[in-house]
Design a protein around this nucleic acid. Structure first.
Length: 558
RNA sequence: UGUCCCGUGGUGUAAUUGGCAACACGUCUGACUCUGGAUCAGAAGAGUGUAGGUUCGAGCCCUACCGGGACAGCCA
């Protein structure tokens, strides 16, 4: 991991022996949604730091709000972290594991006279809190005697009050310039079933009260969280100092933002519930389960997380960096194959009928150890529709009337005749001739052509569904416009489903999750869910860099 | 007009703790190529928010200002 300000702090602690040379972090998700790429940054940071400093990283579910949290999310979160390649071993904890301890701690603070039961309504509490520029007012219940507070708190726990009737608050300073110090709520009453503690509790700790104490109980040394908790640090420290328990250091860093997508769990949930996407794992989502399904290698995400760095200023990372990381990984690892997405039939008129040649193709030019394979070639082929143009623009190196191209691993062909549909005028077939001396690897001919295109033999091709994904939003910052709802920027072309794709025969046995490079097109992954044995469905993970597209775009402009 | 945090090429992160600003992505050339991929070679692009100060010397220290962000849930 490159140098960053957190490592500097840790190094300093190590120098001064503040924590006895130990580095112990934790990743503390709330199980109220699926993990996304932003969480991946945090996971990589916390587990990565532990690894780098020979320490440990715990997984701790921050499950203090039973109204929002579900078991489904717990299991998805665990799956995603494992998939990324991190291991919390037996250190799987829950804030709810500490509810008893937290209760005792609260009693201790009440006894010390620094916490009290407030009977104001939530509305009144809000009014009494003041504003960022105006001091708040003290609650009339603020000075209840310790004994009464103890009694009331016990009754809260015993379910003798209804939801919202009272809360436990820390007694700090209603005039503090830091709003978090204006007698923050520690416990609220919720007669709710909790996914782990069931009906045992009807009072639940607030984040501020639960988090730091949980860190302390686990012996965490460095509690790394996002910037919005910076203002909470004085409170984090205050609780721990009052309790006189192990004191971890909270460090805040800037969360990840990616261009052309959103990272808010609430908004992602809105897309799911509003059926704008097919689910949390819709391959267009920025969630880890979606990226897994789309085919992103976990190593690429880890490398990406490393590249984006760690700092305190709000960052917006260009998705191009993520895509680059994915391509870089796949370029080295993905087997190359040929597939035609939008088929156009080509007949090689001078090629013998009923003949099939098995041509040798390289599986990965970046890695000879991946070997070679045979690809069948015959008189009738499919090529990509956009590899042919009737009147080719400048610098178009592909097929056009009278022009020649190389068929990858096969022959150079020349387009002799264009067959059109008499009604629509659409090009439906090309008649070409081939030059037998130009067979791949033969070296019989010195003929050179500018372009090489991919193809699939008609009689050997198998038909498959391929899904092309594009960015989910049309603008870099979908939530940046305060006038418009982010859903207005949803990209209508974010998914294109092609059902008549012609793929080379070997692909028929592709296994779920297997990744390939379809030459000249991009990287594709057999869908984890919709593929069947012998009938894979492919997701485009990411297209290849496309220089021609760039040229064409520039030409269009001029 | 409160408290806290942050301002380094288009984007993101560095800068041996004070020594003439580096790396990655992106962009643009060119080479090579049976993937317009990959690879290779190269270029453009910031003088570090602004103004002062300390110093032989400041992106790093100090002051003021400007700009951006966070905080008024019984959410996390």
């Amino acid at each position: 991991m490159p140098q960053n300000f957190i490592k500097e702090i840790i190094d300093e602690h190590l120098r001064t022996n503040k924590y006895g040379g130990i580095v112990h972090t934790r990743f503390p998700p709330e199980p109220n949604g699926y993990l996304h790429i932003g969480h991946a940054k945090s996971i990589c940071l916390n587990f990565g730091l532990a690894e780098e400093y020979n320490g440990l990283c715990n997984l701790r579910f921050d499950d203090t709000n039973p109204t929002k949290e579900e078991e489904e999310y717990v299991s998805s979160i665990k799956e995603d972290i494992k998939w990324l390649g991190f291991d919390w071993e037996d250190r799987e904890y829950y804030a709810s594991d500490y509810f008893d301890t937290l209760y005792e701690y609260a009693v201790k603070l009440i006894s010390k006279g620094v916490a009290y039961v407030d009977s104001l309504t939530s509305d009144e509490i809000r009014k009494y809190r003041g504003t960022p520029t105006q001091a708040g007012k003290e609650s009339p219940y603020r000075n209840r005697p310790v004994e009464e507070n103890l009694e009331l708190f016990e009754k809260m726990k015993n379910g003798e009050f209804k939801d919202g009737e009272c809360v436990l608050r820390a007694k700090i300073d209603m005039a503090s310039p830091n709003m978090n110090m204006r007698d923050p709520v520690m416990y609220r009453i919720r007669h709710e079933f909790h996914h782990r503690t069931g009906d045992k509790w009807c009072i639940y700790p607030m984040y501020d009260w639960a988090h730091g104490q949980s860190d302390s109980i686990e012996g965490i040394t460095h509690s790394i969280c996002t910037l919005e908790f910076e203002n909470h640090r004085p409170l984090y420290d205050w609780f721990i100092e009052q309790l006189e328990i192990h004191h971890p250091r909270q460090i805040e860093f800037a969360r990840l933002n990616l261009s052309f997508t959103i990272m808010s769990k609430r908004k992602l949930l809105e897309l799911v519930e509003g059926k704008y996407v097919t689910g949390w794992n819709d391959p267009r989502m920025p969630t880890l389960s979606a990226m897994r399904r789309r085919g992103y290698p976990p190593e690429a995400i880890r490398h990406f997380a490393e590249r984006v760095g760690v700092a305190k200023r709000n960052q917006v990372i260009d998705v191009a960096l993520l895509e680059h990381s994915v391509r870089e990984n796949l370029n080295k690892n993905a087997q190359r194959v040929m597939g035609v997405l939008r088929p156009l039939k080509v007949i090689i008129t001078n090629y013998p009928d009923n003949t099939v040649e098995e041509l040798e193709a390289v599986n990965n030019p970046e890695d000879p150890s991946m070997g070679k394979r045979k690809v069948p070639f015959s008189k009738e082929l499919y090529i990509e529709q956009n590899d042919f143009k009737e009147d080719p623009p400048k610098k178009f190196f592909r097929l056009a009337p009278g022009k020649e191209v190389r068929l990858r691993y096969a022959y150079i062909i020349k387009c002799e005749e264009v067959i059109k549909d008499p009604v629509s005028g659409k090009v439906i077939e090309l008649h070409c001739s081939y030059d037998i001396d130009t067979k791949s690897g033969l070296g019989k001919s010195d003929k050179k052509v500018k372009g090489t295109i991919h193809w699939v033999s008609v009689q050997h091709a198998f038909n498959a569904e391929v899904r092309l994904y594009d960015r989910l939003f049309t603008v870099e910052d979908p939530v940046g416009d305060k006038e418009k709802d982010f859903k207005e920027f949803l990209n209508p072309d974010s998914l294109e489903t092609l059902k008549e794709c012609k793929l080379e025969p070997g692909l028929k046995s592709a296994k779920r999750g297997e990744r390939f490079q379809f030459e000249r097109l991009g990287y594709f992954c057999a869908d984890l869910i919709d593929s069947e044995d012998g009938k894979p469905v492919f997701n485009r993970i990411v297209p290849l860099r496309d220089t021609w597209a760039k040229i064409a775009k520039a030409q269009k402009k001029n």
